[in-house]
């Protein structure tokens, strides 16, 4: 029993039109078409989706959690990007 696993795919489901595809999990499949069919059976048994994306897990390039601090550091001191940074008198409306 030293079988090789089928490739791993990540599954993304659009739950209804107007919403983005969202990662729901992963599964093994021999090819992309089987991955879509398996995704239907594994992740949409209760009509959870109207569209499925699958992508080989090996093709995903991810940031390194160990470097998250430095990667996201540039945004850390830029609170002026948020509207609450600005003091506007209460009597000024619609701003």
């Amino acid at each position: 029993m030293s079988e090789t696993d089928w490739p791993l795919f990540e599954v993304f489901i659009r739950s209804r039109s107007g919403l983005e595809h969202k990662h729901v999990g992963s599964l093994h499949a021999a090819d992309a078409r089987m991955a879509v069919e398996h995704a239907r059976d594994v992740y949409t048994r209760r009509q959870e989706g109207v569209s499925i994306w699958v992508v080989r897990s090996a093709d995903i390039i991810a940031s390194d959690p160990a470097e998250a601090d430095s990667l996201f550091e540039p945004a850390r001191d830029k609170v002026y990007r948020h509207p609450t940074f600005y003091a506007i008198p209460d009597e000024v409306k619609n701003l």
Binding site: E3, D5, G25
Partner: peptide, 19 residues
Amino acid sequence: GGHGMYLYSAAETLGISRS
């Protein structure tokens, strides 16, 4: 069966293979 699939996938993220 589906629950087994979700869980095997979750375990695989820790470095053990399905096989």
